[in-house]
């Protein structure tokens, strides 16, 4: 990326240690910067701290040391409610499981973050939510409940929900982990398109080499520390 790209996320020297009889360090001195329009993948072997890093970047977890800045604002200095407000407005999450609320229809699930933000009247929120689902090819399924949807459809609803408040940064944790290859390819395409076409950044944790290869940049983690990915090593850390 060119140096002119405005920085969206800056994380400096993040360390996360779980206290206990034997302290476990999940993330070790990790520094990450992500600019607008970037699609970054995070790879590494199982248990290397990929997800933990993502949670720290997404303000879901508090680092033991180090800081996370979102658009230049030090989020680690904010209280819980301010972090929640930041997540609501600027961040969108997609997880391996879709985590849709089962009591609500696909459309209502997408409307949830918008209604919580309360920026628009309900009618407009509904229109926007429908448009998001329609963009992801789910216009016909908007009124269905999550259990009536396939895994790929649910994951696309989850992506639509992550996009609801037009976030700057999408954080995806193994978004294709539970999907078949066709759905997986579809979701990958959507995420890539989100970063490149909509002035957003996407950070995706994955151990799918094909997915990681589509990213603009790859962050490889081993034992919680960011390393330069050696050539010929697949994203899950095994020799290719």
């Amino acid at each position: 990326m060119s140096a002119a790209t405005p920085l969206l996320l800056e994380a400096e020297h993040l360390t996360r240690t779980l206290e206990g009889d034997i302290p476990v360090t999940l993330v070790r001195d990790a520094s990450v910067t992500v600019g607008i329009g970037e699609f970054v993948s995070v790879t590494g072997p199982s248990g290397s701290g990929k997800s933990s890093l993502l949670y720290l970047l997404g303000l879901l977890d508090t680092p033991t040391s180090g800081i996370v800045k979102i658009e230049g604002v030090d989020a680690t200095a904010l209280d819980e409610n301010s972090c929640a407000a930041l997540r609501l407005e600027k961040l969108g999450f997609v997880f391996q499981s879709h985590f849709l609320l089962p009591e609500f229809t696909a459309l209502e699930n997408v409307m949830l973050p918008m209604r919580h933000l309360g920026q628009y009247p309900d009618k407009i929120i509904q229109e926007k939510a429908f448009a998001l689902l329609d963009d992801l090819g789910l216009g016909d399924h908007a009124r269905k409940h999550p259990k009536q949807l396939s895994g790929g459809q649910s994951q696309r609803v989850a992506i639509a929900r992550a996009l609801a408040n037009d976030p700057l940064l999408i954080l995806a944790d193994e978004p294709t982990g539970n999907l078949d290859s066709a759905s997986s390819a579809l979701v990958q395409g959507i995420l890539k398109d989100l970063a490149h076409g909509h002035d957003r950044a996407v950070i995706a944790v994955t151990h799918d080499p094909a997915f990681a290869a589509q990213a603009d940049r790859r962050i490889h983690i081993i034992d919680g520390a960011i390393v330069t990915p050696p050539e010929g090593v697949s994203p899950d850390g095994n020799e290719a």
Partner: peptide
């Protein structure tokens, strides 16, 4: 899980 996802979405503890 729903609580976790709602919180990640930006719902506060009070909500």
């Amino acid at each position: 899980r729903d609580i976790a996802i709602l919180k990640s979405m930006g719902f506060r503890a009070g909500d």
